[in-house]
């Protein structure tokens, strides 16, 4: 195994535990925005998609890259926008 892989695994495991700590404290009332917001974060695949789309290695890889960027951006923009739309509806009693 290469060093890069080991580092990756270390980061992965630590981030998993961090995620568990963070998410365990989110109140049930925010579970839906949590999912859609988390979803938007997982749209970070767009970084990989951009690299692939820009590589310019023949038409197959360009088409795949284009599609990957489209899917990832729908995930990112759709996820953040819909989460924001939901969260702006949550209000406390006094703020009428």
């Amino acid at each position: 195994m290469t060093d890069a892989l080991i580092t990756g695994i270390v980061i992965f495991v630590l981030a998993t535990y961090l995620g568990a700590e963070l998410i365990g404290r989110v109140p049930p009332t925010l579970h839906t925005p949590l999912m859609s917001g988390g979803n938007a974060i997982s749209g970070i695949t767009v970084v990989g998609a951009i690299i692939v789309a820009a590589a310019g290695l023949g038409w197959i890889s360009t088409v795949l890259g284009f599609l990957a960027v489209v899917f990832a951006m729908m995930n990112v923009v759709g996820g953040y926008a819909v989460t924001d739309r939901m969260l702006q509806m949550f209000r406390k009693e006094d703020t009428k």
């Binding site: 495991v13 995620g19 998410i23 579970h31 949590l34 999912m35 988390g38 974060i41 970084v47 990989g48």
Partner: peptide, 18 residues
């Protein structure tokens, strides 16, 4: 890419907890 690994792991554990 580290940022993909971190974010993926965060969301991965979030989904499992839910």
């Amino acid at each position: 890419n580290d940022v993909l690994i971190v974010s993926g792991a965060l969301v991965g554990s979030s989904g499992i907890i839910l």
